[in-house]
């Protein structure tokens, strides 16, 4: 009686064994990976919090509630409020144009969206100095109208917009590409208008990807240092964001205060990572 002959348990196991490393190699590789991650990730993170509380909780609280620190926190929040929504809107528009239509020059457009990631943050700051400083392209025009961009808040916002431009678009483009546009086409065929289709069909489909992009964009906005450093002018209490405030404290050897402010930003980084993992988990669940 010929039929299906299952592999015996023993031989299957032998094959499995041959396609696996011996136990000591597995343990060795895991330990090496652990040591590397411990030295480069865990230890720096631990150092931030330990150094922040080294001189006690009072020094910590004083460092994060002094007027300059509060001004830096407020400015950073303001930059987030102005930057993240604009780049989220841009990300949606760019992803809609690129994934829902076929047109010439599409891959060039995608490459241009990636450009800010390829440019050094210092150069990102420099280009806006070349445009808006008193010697820059629009320098005379701005001076005549008494508008200050460089060494002022608008410069910080514009430089941050540049640096964080790709985040949302880069999350949405592959997601919307893989989803296709058949659902939108069905909605339109059934009589819904364009905006209605977007709100009720597209947006629910992309919400996790959108949130993911926004969270990454937010983390970078809060932490951006190089570009902001070039355009801010480092005026205490006025144009210092949190990372610039940390730099000043550190260079003045106020290490505990510097690490106290740094610990606030590290908490935000950890929250970002937790959110990111939750969203990834949610997105996997929804297929």
């Amino acid at each position: 009686m010929a039929g299906h002959v299952p592999l015996s348990y023993g031989s299957r196991k032998t094959v499995k064994k041959a396609a696996e490393e011996p136990l000591f190699i597995r343990v060795f590789l895991t330990v090496v990976a652990f040591i590397f991650l411990f030295l480069f990730l865990v230890l720096p993170l631990a150092a931030i919090f330990i150094k922040a509380f080294e001189q006690g909780i009072h020094v910590y609280l004083a460092a994060i509630t002094e007027p300059d620190a509060l001004a830096a926190i407020k400015l950073t929040l303001l930059v987030v409020l102005l930057t993240v929504p604009v780049n989220a809107l841009f990300g949606i528009a760019a992803a809609w144009a690129i994934t829902k239509f076929d047109f010439k020059g599409k891959s060039l457009l995608t490459t241009i969206i990636d450009l800010p990631f390829a440019v050094s943050p210092v150069i990102a700051g420099l280009v806006f100095v070349l445009l808006f400083s008193t010697h820059g392209l629009f320098g005379d025009l701005l001076f005549a109208n008494d508008i200050k961009i460089i060494f002022a808040i608008p410069g910080i916002v514009i430089a941050t917009l540049f640096v964080t431009l790709p985040f949302v678009a880069r999350e949405l483009i592959p997601l919307m590409q893989s989803q296709g546009s058949s659902e939108e086409e069905a909605s339109l065929t059934l009589g819904a208008g364009g905006w209605k289709t977007f709100w009720l069909v597209t947006l629910p489909n992309i919400k996790w990807g959108l949130l993911y992009g926004i969270i990454l964009c937010n983390a970078r906005t809060v932490g951006e240092f190089g570009a902001v450093s070039v355009v801010s002018g480092h005026i205490r209490g006025l144009t210092n964001t949190m990372p610039l405030h940390i730099e000043i404290l550190y260079n003045e050897y106020q290490f505990s205060a510097a690490f106290a402010v740094a610990s606030l930003m590290s908490i935000l980084a950890i929250v970002t990572l937790i959110f990111k993992n939750m969203i990834e988990w949610k997105a996997n669940q929804h297929g």
Partner: peptide
């Protein structure tokens, strides 16, 4: 996720 300046001082 960690700001570069924070990583730098740590």
């Amino acid at each position: 996720a960690l700001p570069t300046a924070v990583a730098g001082i740590a």
